[in-house]
Simulated scan of single mutants.
Amino acid sequence: MTQDLTLANAKLILKDEVIVGSLSLRDGKIAAIDTGATVPTGALDCEGDYLCPGLIELHTDNLERHISPRPKVSWPHGPAILAHDRELAGCGITTVFDAMRVGSISSSKARHAKYAREVSHALLALRAQGVLKISHYLHLRAEICSETLPAELAEFTRDDRIGIVSLMDHTPGQRQFRDLEKMKAYVMGKHNMSAADFAKHIADLQDLQAQFGAAHEAAAVAFGQALGAVLASHDDTTAGQVATSARHGVAMAEFPTTVEAAQACRDNNIAIIMGAPNLVRGGSHSGNVAAGDLADRDLLDILSSDYVPAALLMSAVQLGETWGDMARGIATVTAAPANHVGLTDRGVLEVGKRADVVRFKPLGGITSIRQVWSKAHQIA
């Protein structure tokens, strides 16, 4: 069913400026934008709150959290997907690229079981039934340091809405896990390992990388290119790693860990994605470069909620206040991600674009989301 709605007396966050005005929504799209605080008869008075485009999330592990809410606990996929979908809607996210790991390890105590194909089937089935509130795409996290990556990739086709393929190399001693002591504390606690178990785990992973790293990386790049997906790198640390990413045709760098890597991304025209929790917390929980430091150096293009969906809008508002430019801050979670994954129908408040809209109000460090619309239908 179509729905006509006018959202009036709001601060409209446009592509390059913020104005006081109103949005008219019709047939799932933005039909008109008018200036002024007037509230026409039948319009919704937004009482001076901000209106921005629906948020676009490129990398979130949130679905995995719903599927496995505790170690060794597997939750039914359908209910987990619905809970995830509704949580994101409530956080103002109207488009998501659900990150799913492909590439498993069965020969280690810290086992990583295969799950992406089964979960994505369930997700796409729910989408076909029309029960999901927001727009879902797949982001396949290709785990280079694994035993089964090529076989798992081969189970996916162009029909699976794969928008992003990221190259993940979690081999200990480099990238995210340069600091083995931090990795030790995390892995031993999560998997109930002894020191001897951890030492063997490290050796096993390094051996996997030595055996399969080059072949798996090549397979993931070829797969992404064949499906027309955007390629992303992950946890680049050195300029050399970024140079390799550039040769592969990588367009986005997720969470570079150093200023050196971020600057190399900028030099190679690779978009820089940083974690919203990193920005909100004031630093990386892994001891890597702070997102705020990169923002200060103009080395931050896109924010991702990563493991805290509610952090996405909060961090964008924080950036807008830091930069003194709310439109620029909000663009890191709307226009910029849309542009880099080729979604030309959303990400900005413009006539003719999808009527994905978020109404929010900053409250002294807290961002209160008042209402959310997807294609002009209220979903939160």
Rank of each mutant, 00 (worst) to 15 (best):
Q3C: 01
L7T: 02
L12F: 00
V18S: 07
I19W: 01
V20K: 08
S22H: 01
L23T: 08
G28I: 04
A31Y: 10
A32F: 07
I33W: 07
D34A: 12
A37H: 04
A43I: 06
P53E: 11
L55A: 10
L55Q: 09
H59W: 02
D61E: 09
N62W: 03
H66Y: 13
W75H: 15
P79A: 04
A80Q: 01
I81L: 11
A83W: 03
H84T: 08
D85E: 02
R86A: 08
A89F: 05
V96S: 12
V96W: 10
A99S: 03
G103I: 10
S104Q: 01
S107R: 10
H112A: 08
A113C: 00
A113S: 05
K114C: 15
A116T: 01
E118G: 03
V119W: 12
V119L: 07
S120R: 04
S120H: 05
A122W: 05
A125N: 08
L126A: 15
R127F: 03
A128L: 05
K133N: 11
I134C: 12
S135A: 15
H136A: 06
C145V: 13
C145I: 09
R161M: 11
R161D: 15
V165S: 01
D169Q: 08
R175S: 08
Q176P: 06
F177N: 13
R178L: 06
K182Y: 03
K184N: 10
Y186C: 08
H191T: 15
M193K: 01
A195E: 15
D197V: 00
F198E: 11
A199H: 00
K200L: 08
L205G: 03
Q206I: 01
D207R: 06
L208A: 12
Q211T: 10
A214M: 04
A214T: 04
G224I: 07
A226C: 03
L231P: 13
A232H: 02
A232E: 14
D235Y: 14
G240I: 04
G249W: 05
V250P: 11
V250G: 03
A253M: 10
T258R: 04
I270V: 00
I272D: 14
M274G: 06
P277R: 00
P277D: 11
N278C: 04
V280S: 11
G282D: 13
G283V: 13
H285N: 13
H285S: 12
S286P: 14
G287A: 05
A290E: 14
A290W: 14
L294R: 00
R297V: 01
L299M: 04
S304Q: 02
D306H: 00
P309K: 09
A310Q: 15
M314E: 13
M314R: 11
A316V: 07
V317K: 07
R328T: 14
G329L: 06
I330K: 00
P337Y: 08
L349H: 04
L349E: 10
E350H: 06
V351H: 02
K353Y: 08
A355E: 14
A355I: 05
D356E: 13
D356V: 15
P362L: 11
P362R: 00
G365D: 12
I369M: 00
I369T: 12
Q371T: 03
A376K: 02
